[in-house]
Design a protein around this nucleic acid. Structure first.
Lengths: 236, 236
DNA sequence: TCAACACGTTTTCTCGAGATTTTTAATTTC
DNA sequence: GAAATTAAAAATCTCGAGAAAACGTGTTGA
């Protein structure tokens, strides 16, 4: 995720094979098709993604920026491992940065920002309705990301937003493990709605509180799932 | 700067040519030998660094993680541009993150941390003495980096420390423009000493205040230099 | 004078093959 | 039987050459 990437996720079409392979790999890692810790053998993967070895190596190098891939000189590439400890760190860091960014955004957002926030919420709500029946998760994921992005869009700090985009991506890996088997009952739509209203009312304290809880709840869900799996193992 | 890099900057020897080229390029960018905004032509640079084209491309891809290089598909690589606006953003973000990390570090640091902090300060002080006469800036730069790193070393958040290492590197680019022509009189040794004592006394509020000022002063120095250059231009 | 176009040059992007290093497996030795 | 040694196999790392795109220059036409 380049810091100079176009804002608001209006990702332009990939112009090079490196870019295509980078995106395909990123998707496969975030969505779990490439398992955490898995070895990424260039000679094997280059066929899967239809590019040369050098091109694939370059794509993997780019994924190191996002901390989705790790490399240890002379011993190749691996999918970045996951751990509950890491997700807790991601969650806490994200709460701190995203609340700060949200406060700045609420303080500085203008009418156009309010309008795009409403629009993003509406698109998300529509996807939430559709999501009930279908398994079209990707659309909801995309719109959820954009809603969170627009919330902090009026924050003027490019670096804050850059770091948050990395953390969001990291969190998505974990979130995908928990969202469809909800050990903690939650109505995400209601959470988003409360967030929207607090932001529109320029109530920074309330918005930050809701956002904190919103982010932390996902961590607790993943935590609960892991606890379940642990006790399952013990019984078996 | 890989997040899984060994802590405390005990950088192991580079094991691959990619790693060597990466470090050489990073150094040349931070120290200004490769100018901000400059085009990085692979065919030309590969001779300078004594590696093949593919290898150099990979090194450049790694530098994108650090936001020291930017690329626009099909139009090659460039050294990341600099601007006062960007440095102000870096400064503010760094103040927020580094103060938070420092508070956590002070809260959690044990005896071993205190010892390594004293040691790092001592090494820095020695380098400061030597620096008066000589032009051996690199040693001081390295020890200054380590002192700041050790200050926050006891903070348990790997992500916070990862982001801070990126911001520190960015700030170093700007700092190198200002430190030897000091438009604002300052005694950096005294600042570091006050920081050390506040940390050793576990006075988090005071330490955070000093650190904020310490980081902000560098920004004001660069700001003053740019203002001077502007007025010089106007006179000429 | 300016804009648009075409051509040649430069640079980027991409691939496949060869040299090192790591990993695996079998063999030997205590 | 276990540890150490050795050799084969696999994977990584590296380079140079060819295809595609961008850039600069000079020409043409209104």
């Amino acid at each position: 995720m380049n810091i100079s990437a176009p804002a608001e996720g209006l990702a332009a079409e990939p112009k090079t094979l490196v870019e295509s392979a980078y995106r395909a790999l990123r998707r496969d890692i975030i969505e779990g098709r490439l398992a955490p810790g898995e070895k990424l053998r260039v000679e094997h993967l280059k066929d899967n993604y239809g590019v040369g070895a050098g091109t694939l190596r370059e794509a993997l190098s780019l994924l190191i920026s996002d901390a989705l891939v790790v490399s240890q000189g002379q011993r190749g590439f691996r999918v970045a491992p996951v751990s509950l400890e890491d997700f807790e760190d991601i969650t806490q860091t994200r709460v701190m940065l995203e609340c700060d960014a949200l406060r700045q955004s609420i303080a500085m957002g203008d009418d156009a920002w309010e309008a795009s926030l409403l629009a993003a919420f509406h698109r998300l709500a529509k996807a939430e309705e559709k999501r009930i029946g279908s398994e079209d998760r990707e659309e909801w994921e995309e719109r959820n990301r954009i809603f969170h992005e627009v919330l902090i869009a009026a924050c003027p700090s490019r670096w804050l937003k850059h770091f948050l985009s990395i953390l969001y991506q990291q969190a998505e890996r974990y979130r995908r493990m928990s969202l469809y088997l909800q050990p903690i009952p939650r109505d995400i739509h209601v959470e988003h709605e409360a967030l929207l209203h607090a932001a529109m009312n320029r109530d920074a304290d309330k918005a930050a509180d809701i956002l904190s809880e919103h982010i932390r709840l996902t961590f607790r869900s993943v935590q609960a799932i892991q606890a379940d799996q642990q006790s399952d193992k013990r019984q078996a």
